[in-house]
């Protein structure tokens, strides 16, 4: 499923979506950035409550398809800028991480 479809299916807030046609499969939930660097799958969705600027760098370098800020977390302005600059798909939801991950699993495994 591509990121744009995923955003529609889960009714996600779009903070930045420079690459809406990116295929996404699988995912990872985590807030410790080095754990995410080590464990996130390339092309997956990354669910986190971290909202600082480093999230954009981790997402780009770990090559995830999109970041979903869960639990209603809003991106810091610096993160928003960086996500747009680096072409990171940055989405958001009021859903708790667990609920969002459950729905994602049903959609993209």
């Amino acid at each position: 499923m591509i990121v744009r479809q995923l955003a529609d299916e889960l009714d996600l807030t779009v903070f930045a979506m420079d690459d809406p046609d990116r295929e996404t499969a699988g995912g990872y939930c985590g807030d410790l950035l080095s754990w995410v660097m080590g464990r996130a799958v390339a092309g997956g969705a990354w669910l986190t409550i971290m909202s600082n600027v480093n999230v954009a760098a981790v997402a780009a370098l770990a090559d995830v398809a999109c970041v979903i800020l869960t639990e209603g977390v809003q991106p810091d302005p610096a993160l928003l800028d960086k996500a747009r600059l680096q072409g990171v798909n940055l989405l958001g939801t009021a859903m708790p991480t667990y609920a969002c991950a459950g729905k994602l699993h049903g959609l993209i495994g």
């Binding site: 950035l33 080095s34 660097m37 971290m50 600082n52 480093n54």
Partner: peptide, 12 residues
Amino acid sequence: DLGFGAGMGLPN
């Protein structure tokens, strides 16, 4: 607090 310092850098 920023999400680093989990002791995973060198192992990664």
